[in-house]
Computed example of a mutant assay.
Amino acid sequence: MRNDARARLFAPIFTALVASAWIVLWAWGAGPYARYVHHASWSDLPGVAAICEAVPGGSLLLDALLHSAAWLLMIAAMMLPTVFPLLAGFRRLTAARPDRRVLLALLVSGYASVWALFGVAAHVFDATLHQVAERVPVISLYAWLLGAGVVGLAGAYQFTRIKYRCLEKCRSPLMFVMEHWTGRNARRNSFVLGVSHGAFCVGCCWTLMLLMFAVGTGSIGWMLALGAVMAAEKNLPWGRRIGQAVGVALIVWACGIGLMHAG
């Protein structure tokens, strides 16, 4: 297949893959194993069930694999659309190479590995907090503070210097590829390129992703909203202003939670 034909097919195939991830998430969330997609929100405390219930008749390893698969599916649905310009630019750069598909797969793998590590850390922290709350009932009475804190943190982070630095890296994908792509040891270079971009992406969006744990992961509506915000921030000309508006809205929301429970 000629390069121009491949170029025309790249965007539709990419869109179909992302759409498939959303469909699978929706179907999974409506099925008998939805608990691997949904985690309890802080508004559900006290009495929340254990985060990682074993598959009936299954093993702890299978349980962990299903949680990991659900998280990576969320990342594919929410984050891949935000890095489409990077992937498209890298595809053009390597279009003449016979191993271009392998290099693109390694780039995506490197990117996904960073978000996978973030997911492990976030899930462990979230599960630990839930377990502590179950053992210390008084914490459950003030669970709203944790939710308000996460929402407020996400809002305040939108205005920090590190957020802007990471966002600028994400908003200049072609420059990022040119800075990090050497062509030497191409497979390793592709994976490291994905890891590097993933690290900046996490630096840009980690607090927004934490909102999933404050409101309960697995909500298709929340994932669509947060994914749209992150994609707009990175890819639209007025993305920074959208991010600032979201920051203000989150801070107001956190204050509203506080006022609701003040009495």
Rank of each mutant, 00 (worst) to 15 (best):
A127R: 03
A30K: 05
V37F: 03
R240N: 07
L17W: 00
A148P: 02
T207H: 05
A96H: 09
A76K: 01
Y157A: 15
M78Y: 10
A122D: 13
G152V: 01
Y157K: 12
V215H: 11
W22V: 02
V195K: 06
R6K: 13
Q244V: 02
V151H: 04
I257E: 08
G218E: 10
A122W: 09
Q244I: 01
P173R: 04
L87Y: 05
L87W: 06
G58S: 08
R91A: 15
S59Q: 02
A69Q: 11
A232C: 12
G239I: 11
L93R: 15
V24I: 15
L72Y: 03
N185V: 06
A7E: 15
P32G: 04
D4P: 00
W206N: 03
L103I: 08
C255A: 14
R97Y: 01
W206L: 11
R161Y: 04
H67L: 09
T217N: 08
S59W: 01
V48Y: 05
W42I: 04
E179D: 15
W222G: 07
A19R: 08
R101D: 14
A5V: 12
V124A: 15
A40N: 11
P237Q: 14
G89L: 03
A156F: 08
I251R: 03
V102Q: 12
G147I: 00
D4R: 06
F118A: 13
A127M: 03
T82W: 04
I23L: 15
P85L: 02
G258V: 09
A225R: 04
V150P: 00
W26G: 00
F118N: 03
T128L: 15
K163H: 12
R2S: 12
G149C: 06
V215P: 01
V114C: 07
A88I: 01
R187E: 14
C204H: 08
T128S: 15
L259V: 15
V248I: 13
L73N: 06
A7I: 06
L66R: 04
L141R: 14
W22R: 04
V229W: 11
V246C: 11
T182C: 08
L104I: 12
W206R: 02
G243A: 07
A30Q: 12
L211C: 09
D4A: 11
T160A: 09
G256L: 10
V195S: 07
H130Y: 10
L250Y: 08
L61G: 09
W181Y: 14
A7D: 14
A11I: 10
G57E: 05
A105L: 07
I51N: 08
L72H: 04
S59N: 02
A199G: 09
R171W: 05
S20M: 14
P85T: 04
V83H: 05
V248M: 02
E179L: 03
A96T: 07
M74W: 06
V102N: 02
L250G: 09
R188S: 09
V124N: 09
D126L: 01
W26Y: 13
G152T: 01
G119V: 08
A30L: 05
A245D: 01
A70T: 06
M1R: 13
L146V: 14
M178A: 12
S68W: 05
A186W: 00
G29D: 11
V55D: 00
F10A: 14
R165N: 15
S41T: 02
A27M: 12
I251P: 02
